[in-house]
């Protein structure tokens, strides 16, 4: 089968697709077609399946923990665990969500990567935590 390439652009409102070269209705494409989707700007290939699962779990997680008062409740949600279980392929999508203002990703990223780039003085500071992971991610792209 011929791989089909589309560029997946993730933003806070959901998933948009910019396709190269002709437009593709990727959501209707049969799953037995091999589809390579690159996150905009990163060039990291990922499958349609992973992107689907990430977005579905992200929505579930956000909706069901929106007003949870405790961090533990937020990162203990089953959908959060399912996102972490997607592994390294989910990292670009997680980073994009952090750039859009999403928080609470340090647990998942540490679980996936095995590293902790967040300095002790950033404890509890979601912005600094996001910045630390953004810096780490940038070094991985070089």
């Amino acid at each position: 089968m011929t791989p089909t390439t589309a560029v997946l652009d993730v933003d806070s409102s959901g998933v948009r697709i910019e396709t190269v070269p002709p437009p593709l209705n990727w959501m209707e494409m049969p799953l037995n077609r091999q589809i390579v989707i690159s996150v905009s700007g990163s060039g990291v290939p990922m499958t349609r399946y992973l992107a689907d699962r990430f977005m579905a779990n992200l929505k579930s997680w956000r909706d069901e923990t929106l007003f949870s008062s405790t961090y533990e409740e937020i990162v203990s949600h089953p959908a959060y665990h399912r996102i972490a279980a997607l592994g390294s392929g989910a990292i670009p999508l997680i980073i994009e969500d952090m750039r859009s203002g999403g928080g609470f990703w340090t647990e998942a990223l540490t679980r996936i990567t095995g590293v902790d780039p967040v300095p002790a003085e950033a404890q509890g500071d979601n912005q600094r935590i996001a910045d630390s992971w953004e810096t780490w991610y940038s070094t991985q792209q070089r």
């Binding site: 405790t70 961090y71 340090t106 647990e107 902790d116 404890q123 509890g124 500071d125």
Partner: peptide, 15 residues
């Protein structure tokens, strides 16, 4: 308004 205050340790929470 600059930190998430919660006991229990870990980088995501300040106490």
């Amino acid at each position: 308004t600059d930190k998430w205050w919660e006991p229990g340790g870990g980088k995501g929470k300040f106490w």
